[in-house]
Amino acid sequence: MDLDLTDEQRAFAAAIDDFCKRETGTRAQRDALTENGLHKHHQGLYQKMADLGWLEVIESSAVDMCLFLEHTAYGLAPIGGFATSSIVAGAISRFGSADQQKAIVGGTATGRTFSIAMSEPEAGSDVAALSCRAVPGPDGGYVINGQKTWCSNAHFADAILLVARTGGVPGEHAGLTMFMVPADTPGLRISGIDTMGGKEVNDLYFTDCFVPSDAVVGVVGEGWKQLMAGLNLERLILAALMLGTARRAFDDTLGYVKERKQFGRPIGSFQALRHRIADLATEIECCKLLVYRTAELVDRDPSRVLPRESSMVKLKTTEVAREVALAGMQMMGGYGYATEYDMERHVRAALVSTVYGGTSEIQRDIIGKTYGL
């Protein structure tokens, strides 16, 4: 598909592709960087991208950011910290103080990583149920107590964007507040959660954890409104990542069915697989149009909230990525299940994408509400 990109954007995408071919182009390279897929982020590789100036896309256009996310995901570059860092940087750029913007937005551009802590054991999709509480402490600061869970990349992040309750009661959106909490703050304990995807998510335990008043992001009690303002970016980031994953899973599958022979000819020549490939390719093209159309809408007016479009792009692209990866595993047969090949990693990455950042069910509910239902 021919997107309406500038020459600079095309050159940017090509440079990312070339970089990934050199640095992560072989399975041996990727295994060395990730301990055989255990880790999702390699700071050394990430720093190389920062030194090239690429992480400055967080301060550029949404289209540029999507290009970076799509092409690094396609190249299987282990820079998992970028997605959460860019979400945090987006919140800080909108609501943070000048000092916070310098430290977080500027820090992300130079290779620092950040995480976000919102979900709790009893509050996932239902953000209003959050109970982790921050109460006034000495010198105008706050004392935080409670637990957060499923916090991506907190185990290597420099700081964490925390959403805690400063007023109201669980069940109310009012009274939520954002804080930037350095990862080494006394009273904060980070504990990894073992998953089929490796080391990527964590439990966070806050016990009399004190943060100064300048840790508040935006306005006390306005955290819900601030979260809603960031939904365009968060869902678009996840969609762009899964677009790259879907494309890579498709190309890996296509390469396999062209080479693998059964009954005297390549299996891709059989109508059943040929038609399946055609359907998957069409779905990916639809996703690409939706991702970059949504990015263009964001660039036209970054302050405009796009609940329908952002939910649609997240829903469609993550579900297509899951479909492509599972179809790839099926067409590759036993090899698709073997750790010798990347397909089983594509499957694991795609499966969870329909859960984090708002499940597919939540996205459908939001879309339905935008039609007055």
Rank of each mutant, 00 (worst) to 15 (best):
V135M: 00
L254D: 11
I87K: 05
M180L: 15
T72C: 09
L38M: 15
V220K: 07
T110W: 00
I92R: 08
L233Y: 06
C286W: 08
V291N: 10
A278F: 07
K225H: 11
G167D: 10
T24L: 09
D64H: 04
G357S: 08
R248A: 15
T149R: 14
R265T: 09
V320R: 03
C287H: 04
K40L: 10
V169I: 06
M332R: 06
A89L: 08
L280S: 11
D18C: 00
A103I: 04
S310P: 05
V216C: 04
A89V: 08
E56L: 01
A50W: 03
Q330E: 15
Q147G: 00
L289A: 11
D17E: 14
V127H: 05
I87G: 00
A134R: 03
F263N: 14
I267M: 01
S360F: 00
F263S: 13
V63Q: 10
C287F: 01
G44T: 01
N153H: 14
S115Q: 04
M343C: 11
E285M: 07
S115M: 01
D31Q: 04
P186K: 10
D158R: 13
L254Q: 13
A295E: 06
L38Y: 14
M196C: 00
R30M: 09
V163S: 08
S303D: 13
G137V: 00
S60F: 00
A91P: 00
E283F: 03
V169E: 14
A338D: 15
V135H: 01
D279S: 06
P78N: 04
G140E: 07
A129E: 08
P170W: 05
V291L: 05
H155W: 04
S353A: 15
A117K: 05
Q363H: 14
S131N: 10
G357V: 09
I92Y: 11
T359W: 06
G328I: 07
A154D: 06
D7Q: 07
Y205F: 14
C287D: 14
A123R: 07
R94L: 12
E234Q: 11
K369I: 03
V305T: 11
G124R: 09
E344R: 03
F250H: 12
D279M: 05
T185A: 04
A246W: 01
A229H: 06
A338L: 08
C286A: 12
M343P: 11
E23R: 15
I284H: 05
C209H: 13
D18V: 02
E361D: 12
V216Y: 02
M49K: 10
Y337R: 12
M180G: 04
D342V: 03
R112I: 00
R322M: 13
T253N: 07
G25W: 06
D184K: 11
A327V: 06
S60W: 02
L351Q: 09
A174M: 02
T149A: 05
E234P: 00
G53P: 03
D158V: 01
M178T: 01
F156V: 02
F270P: 02
A28M: 01
Y337F: 09
H42L: 03
G168M: 09
G37T: 03
